[in-house]
Computed example of a mutant assay.
Amino acid sequence: MSVKGDNESKESVHRTELYASIPPSCLPIVYHPDYNITFMGLEKLHPFDSGKWGKVIHFLKEEQFITDGNIVEAREATEEDLLVVHSKRYLSRLKWSLVVAKITEIPPLVFLPNALVQRKVLRPLRTQTGGTIMAGKLAVERGWAINVGGGFHHCSSDKGGGFCAYADITLAIRTDQVSGTVFLQGNGHERDFLDDSRVFIMDMYNHNIYPGDRFAKRAIKRKVELDWDTEDAEYLQKVELHSEGALNEFHPDILVYNAGTDILDGDPLGGLSISPQGIVKRDEIVFRAAKQRGIPIFMVTSGGYQKKTARIIADSILNLHQQGLIGAEAMNREEFPSLSTHSMCCSGSAGSAHTTV
Results as ranks from 00 to 15, higher is better:
222 R>V: 12
254 I>E: 00
242 H>A: 06
244 E>W: 13
222 R>I: 09
256 V>C: 12
221 K>N: 13
270 G>D: 01
225 E>M: 15
250 F>Q: 01
220 I>C: 07
256 V>D: 05
273 S>Y: 07
220 I>L: 10
238 K>C: 14
271 G>Y: 00
243 S>A: 15
251 H>G: 11
263 I>C: 09
263 I>W: 10
258 N>C: 06
250 F>S: 02
263 I>M: 12
228 W>R: 15
269 L>V: 11
268 P>Y: 04
249 E>I: 07
257 Y>R: 06
262 D>G: 05
217 K>M: 09
226 L>M: 07
265 D>W: 08
236 L>A: 04
273 S>L: 08
268 P>V: 12
222 R>Y: 13
264 L>S: 02
262 D>M: 06
229 D>N: 14
232 D>C: 03
244 E>S: 12
222 R>C: 14
257 Y>S: 05
229 D>E: 14
233 A>I: 11
257 Y>A: 12
218 R>A: 11
226 L>E: 03
237 Q>E: 15
221 K>M: 14
219 A>C: 03
231 E>A: 15
233 A>C: 08
257 Y>H: 13
230 T>L: 10
245 G>A: 15
255 L>E: 02
227 D>E: 11
253 D>L: 05
232 D>Y: 01
226 L>D: 00
245 G>C: 12
249 E>T: 09
268 P>S: 09
249 E>K: 07
245 G>P: 08
245 G>T: 12
222 R>E: 15
261 T>E: 08
217 K>H: 13
226 L>Q: 02
245 G>V: 09
247 L>D: 00
219 A>N: 02
236 L>Y: 03
219 A>I: 00
264 L>N: 00
237 Q>W: 12
272 L>T: 04
224 V>A: 02
242 H>S: 09
255 L>K: 05
248 N>D: 11
243 S>I: 07
247 L>G: 01
248 N>T: 07
225 E>L: 13
231 E>R: 14
223 K>M: 14
252 P>E: 03
220 I>G: 07
237 Q>D: 11
235 Y>Q: 04
251 H>M: 10
237 Q>P: 06
258 N>F: 03
249 E>N: 10
270 G>A: 03
259 A>H: 07
237 Q>I: 10
257 Y>W: 14
236 L>T: 00
250 F>I: 02
260 G>D: 10
252 P>F: 03
232 D>F: 01
240 E>N: 07
219 A>G: 03
219 A>Q: 01
246 A>G: 05
225 E>V: 12
252 P>A: 04
242 H>C: 12
242 H>I: 06
261 T>N: 08
240 E>H: 11
241 L>E: 12
268 P>R: 05
252 P>Q: 05
236 L>E: 00
272 L>W: 03
266 G>V: 02
257 Y>I: 13
227 D>Q: 08
259 A>G: 08
